[in-house]
């Protein structure tokens, strides 16, 4: 059955379109807010000569797994401090690696270290933490309290 020309159907379509426009506008505001956060975070870090490590935090049920990737970090300078509900990571970065990765960005050449502090999804037992290193990645697994 064709509903073309039905004024009620047309009205519903218009309402739906308007509703969709409002949703799109709300989503754009959220997009902009997320970008604003990234902008402020980045400029704050860069002005301190640091960049954030690459980090992945996974809630594995009974435990929390944290993968910290520090490509180009000087091994002897890696400092990972684990607390019950957050971790703090610092490491110096090989200057050549920075120049190699960002040859076109002169400001990036002033970056000297990784630094980041991350809240964990649950409190962990720091005495039973297990650590493993694979290439540039440090893997920490700790049971939840």
């Amino acid at each position: 059955m064709s509903t073309q020309g039905d004024p009620f159907e047309e009205m519903l379509r218009r309402i739906y379109r308007e509703f969709q426009n409002i949703i799109d506008q709300i989503e754009r505001v959220y997009d902009e807010e997320a970008l604003e956060d990234v902008f402020y975070e980045r400029t704050r870090q860069y002005s301190r000569g640091s960049i954030e490590p690459i980090i992945s935090i996974m809630d594995m049920g009974d435990s929390v797994r944290i993968i910290i990737d520090l490509p180009g970090a000087k091994e002897s300078t890696i400092d990972v401090r684990v607390y019950e509900d957050y971790i703090h990571v610092t490491a110096s970065i090989d200057e050549r690696m920075i120049k190699d990765a960002f040859p076109e960005l002169s400001w990036a050449h002033k970056i000297r270290r990784f630094e980041g502090r991350y809240r964990l999804p649950a409190r962990i037992d720091v005495r039973r933490i297990k650590m493993e290193k694979k290439g540039s990645r440090i893997i920490l697994t700790a049971p939840k309290i």
């Binding site: 990737d69 490509p71 180009g72 690696m97 920075i98 190699d100 990765a101 290439g135 540039s136």
Partner: peptide
């Protein structure tokens, strides 16, 4: 070049 790519 894995490290360089990840950093970039």
């Amino acid at each position: 070049e894995e490290d360089k790519i990840k950093l970039r």
